[in-house]
Structure formats: structure tokens, C-alpha cells
Design a protein around this nucleic acid. Structure first.
Lengths: 213, 213
DNA sequence: GAAGACCCCTACCCGCCGTCCGGGCCGGAC
DNA sequence: GTCCGGCCCGGACGGCGGGTAGGGGTCTTC
């Protein structure tokens, strides 16, 4: 049985959600709250599996409460009428694993609760669409290219280049890896040649684009 | 009526998908193909609304064909047995708006076709989950912090620091901005002091985190 | 209109970075 | 065994990078 708490400032909405969810045999609504503060309190006291959080609420809104609720244990599904980008960003950064519009069909809402309880994620289709495009654009396009360029490096060379990318000087790198500064320079030089780079800055950029830290 | 083409190398799978989809009154399977080449041909000839593409196929696999199919018009939903990260990355970069596992329930499959046809996106829950976490991590958290650190720089200093972040040497920067190399050094030096950085590499990292190029 | 603040530019000195050269070590090929 | 190639290490030299000091320009502020 999946234990759910419903949070919304409008009692009518809470009642509606409760009706929808309790129609499912494997879902039980064990609590309700009317704002973010109440949500957090319920999260600690009832320890539900899933929490449905309205975005806009008086006093403490859902987005503000989300991070604390997530930290308290429950999976969080955000509910909203408008899928504004800013809402989505903040919600996902806060650790929410669901983001649904209030016009979601009842069956999908129950399905979302199950999906989230199982450790997966569920987003409204429009949200998914934009998440994908933001991923495809600034996604691993450059990252994979950078990794491929770094491929010819030796394990040791890569290790040193990563230190370079952290902004460390040769002397410091030498201390960290317990070797002579001259050796560090040699490795850096070899890396520069292999990657056809002129600067150690360019090495750092490559490593950063490749996401290695 | 949503017009769909099903692409899979196994005839049995194609037949199964056709059965599932044609059970829906608003979906019609208008074609089939057994590999990526066939998929592309059908995409051009039949101009379907949606194309279901298996990832692993002989000759031309689905991931390779996806980009061309997308360019030809149809929305693409990828189908696979395993949701490997690499598959997902390539598929989304190729422009696919759906990524489903083959164990998806029939009802959801039809729903995915409708969702995609309507211009939205549909991913398997496990895929959504990882997409979210990759988004939350590399969110604008660090970007804004970096921009704030760069704030005290003057316009000119920022301009020069950006050149530094591109991996250019002082002499080259001097040529580009038509000034003396000594001047470039002075600006860099000021920037280093303001940002409490020890290296020009650290400047480059800041600029990159701030997303300025 | 003079002082002050800020920005932009320049010149010189030193330390770090990068290059070139070479040696020791291990693996496989024959 | 011997040769060969790749990888890791080290030393000595030239050039680039960074620190310091100072001059000129414009805009505010009194």
C-alpha cells in the first residue's frame, strides 16, 4: 500500500485528489495539509511514501517547501496549473521527481504515484518535451566530443591534466602527485602535443567540457 | 487519425505492435520496415505522423537512422529492451521525442503515440528519472554563482578574461583587441586580484562555468 | 575648477610555464 | 637473448605569464 499526503490550499482540490487516489486499491491518502509548513510537519510525522505538493500556496509555497520535504524522506510530485519554466527548474533542482499539471487524467495521476513510489520519475508531457530539448541543446554534444579528444592521453597524463584543469600550478601538482616538477611539465607538454593545444588553459577547457573533476 | 509506421527487425514484434496500436480507434499503422534504411524510405514515401524505431537492428540501426527520419518529418519514438545511457543520449540528440522500453504496457504505448503526435514527449519512467538528475546537477546553480563572482570586473576586464577563457595567450589577445601586451597583462592581473585567483586557468574556469563565450 | 575616483594604457623585473633532450622501466616480436 | 616501442621520469634553457609602479583620460562631487 502506497501512503500519500496531499497538500493544497484549496480544500476542494484536496478532496478531489483524495477521491481520485483512493479509488486505486493500492493507494491510501494518509494526510492532508494546506501549505508548505504543514506539508513539512506531515512529512516528518507521517513519513508518507509520496507527497503531492501544489506549487502556489499561501505562507510557504510548494517550491520552497519541496527541498525540505525531499530531505525528510518522501518522494515529491509537484502539481500546478501552469507549467512555467521557472517552476519546473526550481522543482527539479529541489529534488522533486514528478511534475504534473492539474488537468492530468485521474488514471495517470494514480499511475504517477506508483511510478514515483517505485523510484522512478513522471513528468507532464509538455514538461518532458522541454526538458529533452534543453538536454539535447546543451547536452553531451560537447561533452562527448571533448572526451573523444582526451582519449589518446595516458592514464597518468589525464590525471595530471585534470589537476591542471583545477587551476593548480606545476609545482603544486608535483607535490600532490609526489613527483618532480620537471616531470609534471613533461606530461603537460606531451598532453599539449597530443591534443594539439597551445596552452594549459585549453587543456583545462577540454577537461571541463568533458565533465571530469 | 494518427498514421504510424512500425520499424523492427523481428516480424513478430512488428505484428505485436501493430495489434496493440490498431486496437486504438484513433491510430492506424500504415507501414512497416525491418531496418533503418527501410524506415527512412517509408518516412519519405508515407509521411507518417509517428514512427516507432527499434534501437538494435541489422544493417542500419535505429539510432543511426533516427536523425534522418526526424528530418524527414515524422515524430520518432525509440523502442528498446535496455535503457542504456548511451542509447538515450544518442536518441535524444538525434531528435527523438519518445524513448520507451519494450515492456511498456499496451495502453501506455498508444498513449505515447498520441502524446507525441500532439507535439509533446514521452519517456520511460526510468529514463525520465535519469534525465532529471542530470538536469538538476548541472543546473544554473554554479552558473549564477560564477556570474556573481565575475560581477566586480569592468567591461574591459571581462572582455579580456573571456579571451583568456578561450585559451588565447597574452600576445594573441593584444593583437585581437589591438593593444599592447603589457596592457593585457595588467588587465589580467587586476582580474586575478579582484577574483582572488592565482592562475589564469582559474579565470578560464570561472568564465566557462558562467557560460560566457 | 579642482580634487577625487575609476578606467584604460604602458614599461620593466622575476618566476613559472613549456620545449628539447635524455635515461630507466616494462611489455611484446622475432 | 635482443631489439623495439610506449610510458614514466628528470634536467637545462628560452619565452610567456604575473606583479609592481606610474601616466593620461573622463565623469562625478563639492
Amino acid at each position: 500500500m502506497i501512503r500519500v499526503v496531499v497538500v493544497d490550499d484549496e480544500q476542494l482540490v484536496r478532496a478531489g485528489l483524495r477521491l481520485i487516489l483512493e479509488a486505486a486499491p493500492d493507494i491510501a491518502v494518509v494526510g492532508e495539509a494546506a501549505d508548505g509548513a504543514g506539508a513539512l510537519e506531515q512529512a516528518h510525522r507521517l513519513r508518507p511514501d509520496v507527497m503531492l505538493l501544489d506549487v502556489r500556496m499561501p505562507v510557504v509555497d510548494g517550491l520552497t517547501a519541496a527541498a525540505d520535504v525531499v530531505a525528510a524522506g518522501p518522494k515529491v510530485i509537484m502539481l500546478t496549473t501552469f507549467d512555467l519554466d521557472e517552476y519546473v527548474h526550481r522543482a527539479l533542482r529541489a529534488g522533486a521527481v514528478g511534475f504534473l499539471l492539474k488537468d492530468t487524467p485521474p488514471r495517470e495521476l494514480a499511475e504517477a504515484v506508483r511510478t514515483v513510489a517505485a523510484g522512478n520519475a513522471m513528468l507532464a508531457p509538455t514538461v518532458t518535451r522541454r526538458l529533452i530539448s534543453s538536454f539535447a541543446e546543451r547536452g553531451p554534444a560537447r561533452r562527448d566530443a571533448a572526451r573523444q579528444r582526451l582519449a589518446p592521453l595516458t592514464a597518468r597524463e589525464l590525471e595530471i591534466v585534470r589537476e591542471v584543469a583545477r587551476g593548480h600550478g606545476n609545482a603544486e601538482i608535483a607535490r600532490r602527485l609526489t613527483m618532480s616538477e620537471a616531470t609534471v611539465k613533461a606530461h603537460v607538454s606531451r598532453a599539449l602535443a597530443k591534443l594539439q593545444a597551445g596552452n594549459r588553459v585549453q587543456l583545462a577547457i577540454l577537461v571541463h567540457d568533458a565533465d571530469l573533476l
